[in-house]
Simulated scan of single mutants.
Amino acid sequence: MALSIDRVETAGPRNVLGPRHQNRLIIAPQDHRPYSPFLFLAEDWFAPPAGFPTHPHRGMETVTFVLEGQMLHEDHTGAHGELEPGDVQFMTAGGGVMHSEMPGPRGVHSLQLWLNLPAAQKMTPARYGDQRASEAALVTGEGYEARLYAGELGGESRPHGSLWPLALMDLRLDAGATLALPLKAGWRGFLLVLEGEAQVGEGSTTPVRADQHAWTHAADADDVLPVKAQTPVRALFYAAPVIDEPVVAHGPFVMNTVDEIRQAFMDYQTGRLTTAGA
């Protein structure tokens, strides 16, 4: 039997953070358990001189999807790159990273997901990888097109660029088209509708509209989440295994205990953040 949805949520309002920078929080839970392993999802529109100058992270991963424009990034190792529309960056903060994310000359519209790491992986060495839109598998069917960045769909597969397993796909459906999204046992997933509206989940009669996200999970066996477009739809599907551990998050650090958060701040203040986990 196909999966039903657990809940539908709506993105928060758009806020002005400063000159040429607007932001809204799509996922910002107080209680992380119903969202695990997803911690946070933000949508940003920013252009020079706005941006995210060098800042720290520890204990989690970021998955950045560029919708429009150009993003320039670099980290404490000197590595750097540019992301164009449809490109994705998988960054593992692990034991500690110092990095910056700045807009190109024409600005950028991006989505950034924070993905948790289990305790055993929180202090791994930092790393990142850029995946170009052209490198994703293109899966097509009757009335739909899917760009597969990680996971499996329609006989195609792509490895996950994150340390923690993650499925990620960019979906476009014509009105009336249907698609079954696979979800592995023990995984949680959500469908973020960017444009249009669709019925999501077995037995659903209420459409999920643009700026809403529908959540589901596969408890004991592999299953599928049915999607039927009511109008032309663009949506992103994210899925990953649940991490059943305590979450203590403060600022840019996500650990399992308060003491670990204190240690992260101490390491940052003493210049040891990027070497403590080495």
Rank of each mutant, 00 (worst) to 15 (best):
D6I: 14
E9F: 13
T10G: 08
A11H: 12
A11D: 14
G12A: 13
G12L: 11
G12N: 12
R14D: 11
L17I: 14
P19Q: 15
H21I: 13
L25T: 11
I26Q: 07
I26H: 11
A28R: 15
Q30S: 15
H32R: 07
P37I: 06
E43D: 14
D44W: 03
P49R: 10
A50F: 05
A50P: 07
G51L: 05
F52P: 13
P53E: 09
H55P: 10
H55N: 07
E68T: 07
D75Q: 03
G78H: 06
E82F: 02
L83S: 03
L83Y: 02
E84G: 02
V88M: 02
G96M: 05
E101V: 07
E101Q: 08
P105I: 07
V108K: 05
V108M: 10
W114N: 06
N116R: 06
N116P: 09
L117W: 08
P118F: 07
P118H: 10
A119D: 14
A119T: 12
Q121L: 15
K122P: 03
T124A: 15
G129N: 12
A133V: 03
A133G: 13
S134G: 03
V139T: 01
E142W: 01
Y144V: 12
Y149D: 03
L153H: 10
S157N: 13
R158L: 10
P159Y: 11
H160F: 14
H160R: 14
S162R: 09
S162I: 08
P165E: 00
L168P: 07
M169R: 02
L173V: 04
L183W: 03
K184D: 12
V200A: 06
E202S: 09
G203H: 04
G203M: 03
S204M: 09
T205C: 00
V208G: 03
V208Y: 09
A210H: 01
D211Y: 12
D211L: 13
A214N: 06
W215Q: 02
T216V: 05
H217V: 06
A218K: 00
A219M: 12
D220F: 10
D223W: 00
L225Y: 05
L225N: 00
P226R: 06
Q230V: 09
T231Y: 01
P232D: 09
V233C: 08
A235V: 02
F237R: 09
I243L: 00
D244Q: 11
V247E: 02
A249N: 04
A249R: 14
P252L: 04
F253S: 02
M255V: 05
M255K: 06
T257D: 04
D267G: 02
D267R: 08
G271Y: 04
R272K: 13
T275Q: 12
G277S: 04
